[in-house]
């Protein structure tokens, strides 16, 4: 293992995955169902941040908004317009639900970017639950709204008849792969960025070990961390955006299953 070889020879520490370990906040016991862990802490922080932005920030109800209220209204308008444009006018009933998903993901992503933070959305358990919630909601809404007509989503009526069963099979598979790709995309993006940053961070103390090599490697890795961090800020927002807009797209399929 390359990392082991490094740590044996030079003393560099490569543990890019350690930041994702779930551990209890108080004590060292096993992680049970209701243990207060770092997951709890960072989810609570995102809830507090959301309340600070969306409730405290708008408590003035001012017609001419201040800074915080502007951001809250911006988020509101952004998601509202997305729901209306992508999922259709009759999907605005799902707006609070989609807003919840977006706000949670965006705040979890951004809070995870703080140094020494724990990124809740980098765990497959969290993103899989989010994606399955969307999947179940969309499927239930589709069957409630259209009954068996929802299955028309898989029957591509514009294709030639002999091709339709094949296409139906492909459509069904892609329908059930949706929650997988939906969750792994978010989790993978979050984890990849953080792990890469950790790998570069492990190279940074090289100058303490060998001055000659360190003069080359340390500045490079510091610059790389800064660059990756900038990219991660972008990714943190874009992944929340993508998760939300895909939710809207799936919702549109459920509300208007005609191909």
């Amino acid at each position: 293992m390359a990392t082991e070889a490094h740590s044996d020879e030079g003393g560099l520490v490569f543990h890019p995955m350690d930041q994702f370990i779930v551990k209890p906040l108080f004590g060292d016991g096993p992680v049970g169902m209701f243990t207060i862990t770092n997951v709890t802490l960072w989810m609570a922080l995102s809830v507090i941040a959301i309340i600070a932005l969306m409730v405290m920030g708008t408590s003035g109800r001012s017609t001419i908004p201040g800074r915080v209220q502007s951001i809250g209204e911006l988020a509101y308008g952004f998601i509202y317009k997305m729901v209306e444009d992508v999922a259709g006018k009759d999907a605005v009933g799902f707006f609070p639900y989609i807003m919840t998903l977006f706000m949670f993901i965006v705040f979890a992503n951004f809070l995870g970017l703080l140094p020494a933070a724990f990124t809740t959305t980098s765990h497959i358990a969290v993103t899989a639950v989010l994606a399955l919630l969307v999947f179940v909601t969309v499927t239930v809404v589709g069957f409630v709204k259209h009954g068996m007509g929802f299955l028309g989503l898989f029957w591509v009526s514009s294709a030639p008849l002999p091709l339709r069963p094949v296409l139906a099979l492909i459509e069904v598979i892609s329908y059930f792969v949706r929650p997988v790709s939906h969750s792994i995309r978010l989790m993978g993006n979050m984890m990849a960025g953080h792990a890469v940053m950790k790998v570069f961070a492990a190279f940074a103390p090289m100058i303490l070990l060998s001055t000659g090599l360190g003069l080359l490697v340390t500045p490079l890795s510091v610059i790389a961390i800064a660059a990756i961090y900038g990219l991660e800020i972008l990714v943190a927002f874009i992944q929340a955006y993508v998760f939300t807009i895909l939710t809207c797209v799936y919702l549109k399929d459920a509300l208007h299953p005609a191909h």
Partner: peptide, 27 residues
């Protein structure tokens, strides 16, 4: 732009899958 991001997300997801496979093999 929404279509753009959806397209990018779909293309990127496959790269993330391969990254995930690599991580699984490693760890």
């Amino acid at each position: 732009t929404a279509t753009l991001f959806i397209g990018i997300a779909f293309a990127e997801a496959l790269g993330i899958f391969s990254f995930l496979v690599a991580l699984l093999l490693m760890f």
